[in-house]
Every structure is written in C-alpha cells, then in structure tokens.
Design a protein around this nucleic acid. Structure first.
Length: 801
RNA sequence: GCGGGUGUGGCGGAAUUGGCAGACGCGCUAGACUUAGGAUCUAGUGUCUUUCGAUGUGCAGGUUCAACUCCUGUCACCCGCACCA
C-alpha cells in the first residue's frame, strides 16, 4: 500500500483544527503542563528550518504529555515589533502594520502545514494594541516604583540605524542589527533599573532547572563581585577619591592611583592641575579609539600623570601619584582604582612603563618578573602580616577600614541598567507626558493603550529623533495632572519589551480587565519547560526574568521564577557546514521539504539529524532515510495479524523500546529515540508480522514525531477514537531483559568468544562454559590463570600468564 | 587573555557512564525484481591482511584485568566574555 502523505496530512490538519484538538482546557482538576518555545519574529523571509527544529523538541514533549493525561498549554505567538519590518516599510512605503499582518499570516499557514500542535486560540501579537496595552501598563508600574527613570549619560549610539542601543545590543562595539561601529553620545534616555534586581536574579537561578551553561552565562553576565570601597583623600584639595577593590588586603602595596579619563575631578579641579591641557588631549585621543583598537592594545598601557594633585593612602598616609588611563573605565565601580602593581597584571604593566615603585605584599611570586596574582602570606602589610588565607585578610582589612571610617564593604555588578528606548516608529509608545509645571507625568492607566499613531513617514529624524516627534497630533496633549498643554514622550520601547512577559499573556490572551486572570495564572504558572536558542540566554532570558520577578514583588504573579526548566537547541547549518544565510544561498526552506517528502518526514529528520543541543549540517540525502522510515512504517498495515498481545519474539523489544523512547524524549535525545524506533521496525520486518497490540504501541510511540501518519494508521487499523485520547504505552521493567543473554569472553582483555547463555546462569556455570570454548582454550593453554573477572550479564575476562 | 565546549568510519552521529567501539541513518559495493530506476527488496561495508590475525575513538604518556570514558601533558577547532579593579 502506498502512503499518500499529501492528502493524509491535509486531512488530519483540517480535522485537528475543526475539533480544536490541541486547545488547552480550563479544567483545573487535571495536572497541567505548560511548554513554551520562543515566539518568532515574523520576518518577510518566512519560516526557516531552524524554527522547525526549535519547535519540534517541545512539540514532541507536548504530544507525549497529552497522551500521559496532562492538560497541556503549548502556545505560539509573534514578537512583531522591530527594525527589519520598519526598514522594509521605509524602503517600500508599505505600512509596518500591513507588513506584519501579512508575515504573520504567512508564518501561521506554514506552521500549520507542519502539523504542530500549537493552541492557536491563545496566539498573541506583541504589536496588537490589546497586547501592548499591558506592556505599557507594566512599564507604568515600574515608573511608579522608580524602576523606570530618565538619565543623561553616555549612550551607545548607532549612526547608521540612528538608535540608542543597550550594552547588550552593542556587544563588541558593533551594532547588533547593522554591525556598524557604535559611537558614544550624551543623551537623555530611559532606563530600567535592572541592577536593583541583580541579586534576586542571581538567587533565583538556584531554584530553577536550567542547562548548566545557561546558568553560568547568566551569572557571568550579572557579574557580581564583592570587595570594598575605600576613600583616598587628595592632598591639595578637600576631596575624597572613592575607589572599588576586591582586594582591600593589598592596600599596603598601593603605589599609585588611576582614574578614568572622563572622571569628574579633572574638570572640578582643573585650576589646580598644571598639565590640564595634556589630560584633555589624552581624553580626546581615547574617545577616538574604536572598541577594536582598545582591545587590541590591551597590553600596551597608556596614560598621563596628573600634575598638581596627589593622593594619600589612608592606611599608611603615604603620598602617591594619580594617573589617568583608559584601562580604567567610568562605567564600572567608581571610575577610579587603587593600583597594586605587585599583584595585578594591568597595574604591573602600567607601573613598569611609567617607572613606578612596585611593593610586594604577598609572598610566593617573583615581582621583578611579573605580577603575582595568586594568594600568599602577607608581608610589608602592618597588621595583616603573616596572614595566608585570602578571605581572612580581606575581612580583617575591611573591618579595619570600616572602623577607621575610611572604607566599607561593597558589591559591584558588571550588569548595567537597561537602556529602554529607541528613536523608532515600530515599537510600543512610552506612556509618559512632559508638562512644564508637573514634570514627567504617567498616562493614566484607564487611558491605556496609548496607541501608536498611523503615519506615512517612518524615517527617523536627522539627529536621531523618533519619527513620532513629527506627528503633531500625537505629541501635543494635555497634562493628565493639571490639564495644561503638554508634550508626549516620542521614543518607543526596545524590541525586548514585548517578549519580556508574553508567556503570561498566553494564559489569558483576550482578557481586557487584567493582563491575565489570577486564578488562571495560579494554575498554569510557572512555565514547566522553556526551549529556545542559546543566543537569547543573556538578554531575553534575563530581561523576562526581571519583569516577572518585578510582577511577583507586586503580587501580580504567583511564582518568583517564570521558567522552571530551560533548554536550548543547536543550530541547523547549511549543507556546506556553514551557518545558513541568505547571502551564502545555503538556506533550506521547510516548505520545499514538506512539498517533497511531507511534514512527518521533515519533523522526524530535524530531530534525527543529530544531537538536539548541537549544531548539525542539513543533508538532503539523509532526509530520504526518514522518508523510507515513514513509508516502511505505513507498510506495517500489510503484515498485521489478529493477535491482541505482544508476540513472544518481540515482547522484550517492545518493552525496551517503550522505556527508551519514553526516557529519551525527556532528556532531549530525540535522535536516539527515533533510532530505537527504526531498530524496532527492522526487527518487526525480520519477524515477518506484527500483532495488533504491537502496532498500537508502535503508532503511539511514533505519534509525537510523526502525528499525521500515525493518526491515519490508527484510524485504518480501527483502534477507535482520536489518537490524542489514547494513553502513552507502559512498559514492564521485568520484561525489558532477555531470557538468554550474550556474554563476551575475553582473555587478557582481548575478545575471544561470545556465549549465549540463560540469563539465570551462575558465574561458575558461565566460567566453565567459557573455558570449553576452542579459542579460549588455545589462548590460555600452557598459562597460569591469575585472575577471573566476571561482570554480571556482560562479560568474562580471564587473566593468564 | 579568561570562561565553557568539542575532537570517534567516506558523512551525520551511537556507546546503559570503566566492560563487545562504530547503534540508527546516509553514502558506497554486489545481487534480485524491472522496458527503465535517483523506486523497492536481500547481503556486505572502520583500517591493514589472501587466511590466521593485527590494529583502531586528535596526539604523547599514565592508572586498570579492562579506557572513547579516569589522570597528566599537548595540539586543533567552535561558542561566549573581553582591561570588571
């Protein structure tokens, strides 16, 4: 019988849709399972096989959970604000609203062709006013709590995209979107005070089940360090220079100080500084350096001594010089450091170049050759002398500083506050009004959503002004507080805003009273399993944990952490082994695969192609292997007999396969789960026929991977009802072991024979059978047996000399 | 430089965690069926060797009756972060 995948797949997709087969039920008596995949950005290019792989993992888990009796929520929506759409609109003149709607339609129909069991009744679109109403609502709550604020500061600015970028969006000094070089600019921008949540975000990691490297990357991103702040007084003026250090115990080794070129004391005391113009020249020079130059010249330290100001080391009252250098940055700590050249590589390089004293305060290295950065016995350190333990010394030093009032314990994070605005059209308007009398006034909650006005011109202004600034009817408004004429904020939110809470809206997407009903949240949250790409681990994942934790503190959500478990899939590379990209022309379109082989084959292949968590190249030939597997599965209908039991021959294999497929699905080992089904299929064909019970089990095990063909076979075999109403097969542990087992016989670790013995055989029996074997006999002939090793059920090793 | 990871046939990848290396799939070889085959089926397929056998998981050592797996050193590639005081 030939399998006509085209008509079968269409038939079942239609039935599933009509029957609302995969809609989550509001039946709280059942155990729930919330599986979440990262929602796509609906680009004009359409779906990519990478999307298919990303969704297939939890698709399999979700289908299995339904068969296991769970009430499953497996939704998908669209993260539709963003630059590509806006740039496309600028180029073509087509409104982003229309572009977005078209792309969403296209994505949806492509996804439906693959037969994913998403609950489409719960879909969302972040650009829908009924959605972004609540994004704005959360922003206002943050504003209320002082977590959203405006500050004039140096920002990362992309001259090509004409937008302000967060640190996360400008890694390596390049724009994340267009890869142009970022420049620093002073501007008033919106921030979200994510640093207030640094500790909570760090703490929360302890209670979740994330991949170890995901946790690690988040920890590194937050970058917590503990140490101390120390005040150094400046000799010539009444001013303290505050520094941050992780090693206050090395204070006796300080021989100079370094401040960032932008440090404010330079301006403040320029009258006292005799070489002020030299310092300004250096600062200008530094500002010109690109990020690339800065990192390339790491080892070659530059700087200028400040003439006219010097510092006093508070621990021994010694006078020390102050330098400016770009190896100290204004953005971390206090923008000033105490330099301990003997025990810090950067300070060492700097001291060598400028001929500054190097004083050893930790024994163990040779400071004439290099900085010694390990721990060791304290020397030349007054009250710290003799202490070896680093922590003890740090504690003692910190206590001393506090006692003398010259310093205190301190904590620093690498993570910066989140620059939360873009000068762009296609984003959520920030619901704030500027009034001359009242200052910044939030748009009242009942006036939300603050709608994005329809415009025809999407280009940002010359100086990076938002396109909204030109829309008079939007900008001009009345102050909600005093009624006086006022102006609206014209910046919009960054792309990360909408995705920071979308998993909450899926639970209750049509609610117009609250962002989601509390009872529903209580039942469905947290997300049980969240899968996505490694590239979102430090941005989206941290941002959304931050928003969720904020909502928890507000009492709006029932749990601290949004995601109980997080995994990540590996990329699909092009057939040439390179990352897929339009420019290389190595992109595989899932539509073509569905057309040629069918959705079941596509789904099976993306999971079979290799380790789910690793990158693997696409192979057009290997897809055919999955096609054969699907076709051969269908032909099982030709060899089915009437028995309603497992056959003697295959019973053990079936129990083993149920066990393996069940556990492999839980540990992302989809490739070996499918491989074991292929093995079982081969065994069935060797056996010549399949019982009805065996067919039923096989169909159920394959169903999460290949739902269309299994649903069709279920119906053709007359098992009754829809497949999703059936139960996941059970296995019996005692039936997973064969009655006869194969024992490997080695002599001196080398394979000599394989014995087929009864599983019940004793060690002595097996040994004596082993020694009867001709090859074993000749291998041990004339030698003394020194040792006999027996590994139960596996092998015998005879050591003979 | 720091952190994490990977290295197994012609290819993608398995290996119950120290116990038969190469499951499963692709590709390839031979055969069958066929007007035909880029369809299907059967058999074979790490390397060397005619056989016996030897050898084999990046490389060099070590531990062990036994090592892809553990230890020491080393090389290569990939992914993060990048002067974080």
């Amino acid at each position: 019988m030939n399998y006509d995948f085209k008509s079968v797949e269409q038939k079942w997709q239609k039935i599933w849709e009509e029957n609302k087969t995969f809609e989550a039920k509001e039946d709280y008596s059942k155990p729930k399972f919330y599986s979440l995949v990262e929602f796509p950005y609906p680009s004009g290019a359409g779906m990519h096989v990478g999307h298919i792989k990303a969704y297939s993992g939890l698709e399999v888990v979700s289908r299995k959970r339904r068969l296991q009796g769970y009430n499953v929520l497996f939704p998908l929506g669209f993260d539709a604000y963003g630059l590509p759409t806006e740039n496309y609109a600028i180029k073509t003149g087509i409104h982003p609203r229309k572009v977005t709607d078209d792309n969403i339609k296209n994505f949806t129909s492509q996804l439906k062709r693959v037969g994913f069991s998403f609950d489409w009744s719960k879909t969302i679109d972040t650009t829908d006013e009924n959605y972004y109403k609540w994004t704005q609502w959360i922003f206002l709550k943050m504003f209320e709590k002082g977590l959203a604020f405006r500050d004039k500061t140096l920002i990362n600015y992309c001259p090509s995209c004409k937008v302000v970028l967060s640190n996360e969006d400008s890694q390596g000094g390049k724009c994340d979107i267009c890869h142009s070089t970022i420049v620093q600019k002073s501007k008033d921008v919106w921030y979200l005070r994510i640093t207030d949540y640094a500790d909570k975000l760090l703490e929360g990691l302890k209670e979740v089940d994330y991949l170890p490297n995901v946790k690690l990357q988040q920890e590194n991103w937050i970058g917590k360090s503990t140490g101390a702040f120390v005040d150094f007084s400046i000799k010539q003026v009444d001013e303290k220079l505050k520094i941050y250090t992780t090693r206050p115990d090395t204070l006796f080794g300080v021989t100079f100080m370094v401040i960032a070129p932008e440090h404010p004391i330079i301006e403040k005391y320029k009258d006292k500084i005799s070489n002020y113009s030299e310092l300004v020249d250096y600062k200008t020079e530094c500002a010109k350096k690109t990020e690339f130059e800065r990192t390339q010249l790491v080892k070659d330290k530059t700087g200028v001594k400040i003439e006219g100001l010097s510092a006093i080391n508070p621990i021994n009252d010694k006078e020390i010089p102050i330098y400016i250098s770009d190896y100290v940055m204004m953005g971390y700590g206090t923008g000033a450091i105490m330099a301990v050249p003997a025990h810090d590589e950067r300070d060492y390089d700097f001291a060598k170049k400028f001929g500054i004293d190097i004083i050893e305060v930790l024994k163990g290295g040779d400071i004439t050759k290099a900085a010694y950065t390990e721990s060791g016995e304290h020397v030349n350190s007054g009250f710290l002398n003799g202490i070896v333990d680093k922590n003890e010394a740090v504690e003692k030093a910190t206590a001393y500083l506090a006692e003398k009032g010259i310093g205190e314990k301190g904590v620093q994070y690498k993570m910066k506050d989140w620059a939360f605005n873009r000068q762009r059209y296609w984003g959520e308007p920030i619901p704030i009004v500027y009034c001359d009398k009242c200052g910044m006034v939030p748009v009242p909650y009942e006036e939300l959503p603050l709608k994005l006005p329809k415009v025809d011109e999407f280009k940002p202004g010359q100086d990076g002004e938002s396109p909204l600034a030109k829309v008079e009817s939007f900008v001009n408004c009345k102050c909600p507080k005093c009624g006086a004429p006022a102006r609206r904020e014209t910046d919009t939110m960054p792309q990360w805003a909408g995705s920071s809470w979308y998993f909450l809206r899926y639970i209750d997407p049509k609610n117009d009273k609250v962002f989601a009903d509390k009872e529903k949240l209580k039942y469905w949250m947290p997300v049980d399993w969240y899968n996505g790409g490694m590239e979102h681990v430090t941005r989206h994942l941290i941002y959304s944990r931050f928003w969720h934790r904020f909502l928890y503190d507000l009492g709006e959500v029932p749990c601290k952490e949004p995601y109980a478990k997080r995994t990540a899939q590996g990329l699909i590379l092009g057939p040439d082994g390179d990352k897929m990209s339009k420019s290389k022309g190595n992109v595989v379109d899932p539509n073509d695969v569905v057309d040629e082989y069918g959705a079941d084959v596509l789904r099976t292949y993306v999971l079979f192609m290799g380790d789910y968590e690793k990158a693997a190249p696409w192979s057009k030939d290997a897809v055919k292997g999955c096609k054969r597997f699907i076709d051969r599965t269908f032909s099982l209908l030709d060899i089915v007999n009437d028995s309603e039991e497992y056959s003697e021959k295959l019973e053990t294999s079936f129990h083993k396969t149920i066990k393996k497929v069940s556990s492999d699905i839980e540990t992302l080992k989809y490739n070996t789960a499918i491989a074991s089904l292929m093995t079982l299929l081969n065994e069935i064909y060797s056996a010549g026929s399949i019982t009805r019970k065996e067919l039923k089990t096989f169909i159920l095990l394959l169903n999460p991977f290949a739902p269309h063909i299994t649903e069709e076979m279920w119906q053709l075999a007359g098992f009754g009802g829809m497949l999703n109403e059936a139960s996941w097969p059970e296995y019996d542990e005692s039936k997973c072991v064969d009655s006869t087992i194969e024992i490997v016989v080695q002599v001196n670790g080398k394979l000599k024979a394989k014995l087929s013995v009864n599983a019940e055989s004793s060690q002595d029996e097996i040994l004596s059978i082993a020694k009867e074997d001709e090859k074993v006999k000749s291998a041990i002939e004339g030698k003394n047996i020194i040792k006999e090793i027996y590994v139960k059920g596996k092998l015998v090793n005879i050591v003979a000399k």
